[in-house]
């Protein structure tokens, strides 16, 4: 995330706190697509992901007086979405779901597009996707938040309610594992040739 956006979000945070609806709308337009993709990673369905993100924005507005502009508003919203997703999974599965178990099985829906626009190397992307799923859930969460959602370590720490140090450990471990997968994959390709 570049400096401009960072500053922009901070301004939005101040304004939303002061019940500025225009700032809220801007923040919504900016954050909605990214959060829906994030939520879909848990729910596996676009419709429920959209519902959850809308719920999260409603909550954000209702609790706007509690916004701390010195902390990341983005992380705050991600945390709300993540908690709603975990609740959703718990409620819809009918059993208590440990957040550790959540992600792997959530991805059965055909609503999720596996197209990867802008990259011709479709099969390697697919491999990476499989490898990311194969990661332990917390590692996967931390890695994705950092890699795809562009969150800072301390933001991820806020979202996952763990320490920034642990966040870093998760990401480092994830990256090492991905590298191992990738090396094996390369080796196999070379052998096949």
């Amino acid at each position: 995330m570049n400096r401009k956006t960072e500053q922009q979000i901070k301004t939005w945070a101040w304004k939303i706190r002061k019940s500025d609806r225009k700032a809220f709308d801007e923040f919504f337009r900016w954050g909605y697509p990214m959060l829906v993709r994030f939520a879909a990673g848990y729910t596996g369905q676009k419709s429920s992901a959209c519902d959850i993100v809308q719920d999260a924005f409603v909550i954000l507005w209702q609790k706007r007086s509690e916004i701390d502009p010195n902390r990341s508003l983005k992380a705050y919203l991600y945390r709300i979405v993540r908690n709603l997703c975990l609740n959703h999974l718990r409620d819809s599965s009918g059993t208590v779901v440990d957040s550790e178990l959540v992600q792997g099985e959530a991805f059965s829906s055909d609503e999720l597009s596996i197209e990867s626009p802008g990259n011709s190397n479709g099969s390697l992307d697919q491999k990476f996707r499989e490898w990311i799923y194969a990661l332990p859930d917390r590692q996967q969460e931390a890695f994705e938040l950092s890699r795809f959602d562009g969150l800072e370590h301390d933001e991820i720490a806020d979202v996952m309610e763990i320490s920034p140090k642990t966040v870093n450990n998760h990401i480092v471990a994830a990256l090492r594992q991905l590298r191992t997968f990738y090396d094996e994959y390369q080796k196999n390709i070379n052998n096949d040739l």
Binding site: V36, R37, A40, N119, F128, I132, F148, L178, Y182
Partner: peptide
Amino acid sequence: VWKKSEYARPSQMEISPKEI
């Protein structure tokens, strides 16, 4: 490896401006 994973985002769904 980090770079190569760029398009491996789990959900690639597009959200149109109208949807937003």
